[in-house]
Simulated assay, not measured.
Amino acid sequence: MEAVLDELYTAPPFDFVARRETLAAAARTAGRMDDARRIRAARRPTLAAWAANLLLRSQPEESRQFLELGQALREAYQALDAESLKDLSTQRRRVVSALSRQAAQLARDAGHRLSQPVQQDLEATLRAVLADPDAADQWAGGRLANALTPPSEFRPGSAPVAEKPGTRSRPAAPSPSASPRRASKDELAERRRARQEQLARAREEAEAAEQCLREERARQADFDAELRRARKRTEQARRRMSAIEEQMQQAREECRQAENEQQEAEGHSRSAADVVAQAQRAVHESTQRVRRMTRGAT
């Protein structure tokens, strides 16, 4: 069942619904109703989420190293190791860029070119995997349905924050004058981020709809071409059938004529046989008379 779901989430999104229904129907036919419900509940991934799933399944070693990099980054941020942060941040940008290009190439190889908004969603998902352990766990599952959004800062997870010996961490006292402005800026940034996400999703849905329309038009063109070929074959078959029917009609007429000629020949043959029989009797009678006359003369 897990392998079935993994395969479903790496299938192209435009084939997802049809493939999901086929797999669910197969499970129902086999009597696996729980599996059928799990398959039916699977959500179709966006293009960015599908590309991220495809990257995970197609590049397992690179994906494992990427997850390890994310863990190292979160630990560096947690320990506030400035030197490690600098090195890992540079590595983070390089790896995110490289992996996003690999995912885009995998998508092209599968027949789907990623647009710029979808590529941006894919990169945001990879950054979220590095920064957020929950996002890393979701991606590692290989069944993303939506692109992930990176947090505003690295989240170390459940591990404790490192402290210097002999010191105790204290919460920083917020500045009365800075807090409202910072809250306002954070709220504005959150609104902008939400609008950008909505716009990206809308663009992706529009692109998906256009791609679906193109595929349906191509499928209709294939059906129309097949219909034209079928009509041509039907017309050719009708012409051959008409020619065969004409030949059969001619053969029937010739057969009737031959039967009439046969009946007439049979009549002539019977008449000739009667004449021959009569001639044979006359010859026999004549022969007998000659014999009697010969004996009387002697």
Rank of each mutant, 00 (worst) to 15 (best):
M1W: 11
M1Q: 13
V4F: 05
E7C: 13
F16L: 00
F16M: 00
F16H: 01
A18H: 09
A24Y: 02
A27H: 09
A30D: 15
D35H: 08
R37K: 13
I39L: 03
R40V: 02
R44A: 06
T46E: 08
N53T: 07
S58T: 10
S58D: 08
E62T: 11
Q71P: 13
A72R: 13
R74I: 11
L80Y: 02
L85R: 04
L85K: 01
L85D: 02
L88W: 09
S89W: 12
R92I: 04
R92V: 03
V95H: 12
A107S: 15
A110M: 05
G111D: 07
S115N: 02
S115T: 05
Q116D: 09
V118Q: 10
Q119L: 04
A124S: 08
T125M: 02
D132Y: 01
P133R: 00
D134I: 05
A135H: 11
A136P: 03
A136E: 05
D137K: 06
W139S: 02
N146Y: 12
P150N: 06
R155I: 12
R155W: 10
A159S: 04
V161C: 01
E163F: 02
T167M: 05
R168G: 05
S169W: 06
R170D: 04
P171H: 08
A172D: 03
S177C: 02
S179I: 07
S184A: 14
A189E: 01
R192M: 09
Q196C: 07
Q196F: 12
Q196P: 07
A206E: 15
A208I: 09
C212F: 11
L213T: 00
L213V: 00
R214V: 00
A218T: 01
A218L: 08
D224S: 07
A225K: 02
R228N: 11
K232F: 11
T234I: 14
T234E: 15
Q236M: 13
A237I: 08
A237K: 07
R238F: 03
R240W: 08
M241Q: 06
M241T: 09
M248S: 10
M248Y: 14
Q250F: 15
A258G: 12
E266Y: 01
R270P: 08
V276C: 09
Q278T: 12
Q280I: 15
R281D: 15
V283W: 15
Q288T: 13
R291Q: 12
M293E: 14
T294V: 11
R295L: 13
